[in-house]
Amino acid sequence: MSTKTSTNTALNMLKRFEWRQNIIYIGFAAVFILFAVLLSDSGFSNPNNLLNIFRQTATISIMAVAMTYVIAAAEIDLSIGSVAGLAAVVTAMTINSYGLIPGILAGLAVGAISGAISGGLVAWLKVPSFLVTLGMLGLVVGVARWITASAPVPIADQTYITIFGGGDIGPIPGLLVWVVVAVTIGAIVMNKTKFGRHVRATGGNLVAAGFTGVKTAKIKFMVLLISGIAASFAGMLYAGRLQSGRFQWGTGDELSVIAAVILGGTSLFGGRGQVVGSLFGALFIGLINNGLILAGLDVSQQQVVRGAIIILAVALSRKK
């Protein structure tokens, strides 16, 4: 390509720079620099601390990748936090009774089943996903408490703990590898495959997509199925990192995940999906959590500041 055309392309890209879709990168960099300066004494920029941020946000990041698809299709999934909790306890119980492989499969099956039920109801019975997954949120957490009598289920299987959480590959935490894999696949599928394109078409204009031949019902089913599986995978990572299954793992994560996705530039009205943006949205939330702890705020203060920052950031990212 000649220099002239590449300058033109660059100019065009600049002209089309979309504030809403890219604010997350600016915000991320700004907050990062701010914390690096203000919290340099508290060890914020210490590589170990930075890796910790990655570790702690791994589960949110992975669920955010799937949630990007759900929201791009103009649906929502509120059940992911509960599904993660149930997957964690089911995996732990199954490993203890039947071994590693059955445990992993059982954990994934939790998300596949709940996602398929939600997806089926939304796609073919046309029940709004907000209601279906709100119901599923309560139902799933109830099951998790029921089968464990609300007690934690410890995991002793070292292989499982190494793969799903605690382990490192050289200097790189295993959790980081999972996140990179999920985001890479998620971004390619969203931007470069028919499925991703059809997800955005479904969310962008349901009727037009249907008339053009997009199987919109199937798309809705698939995004909720994927979201369920991703949630159960995140639950299994919790179980690995914390070496036990508890129904509380993942509680409330749906809100962080949705905030991460919106921060990342995906429209709540559907039609847009920014997988890489969602990752940075998740990291942004992790960054703030970490910074507030290092700054010495107590838990209640952290909650207030975190809430305010997220509202502010989402408001900014909605600006045209």
Partner: peptide
């Protein structure tokens, strides 16, 4: 109108009929 507002013109024209290369969409 029956277009997807958030997709590009080319993406709309070839929606469900996307040209591909190695299995990925060739935009």
């Amino acid at each position: 109108f029956s277009l997807i507002p958030t997709l590009t013109v080319a993406q709309n024209i070839f929606l469900t009929n996307e040209p591909t290369k190695f299995g990925l969409i060739d935009d």
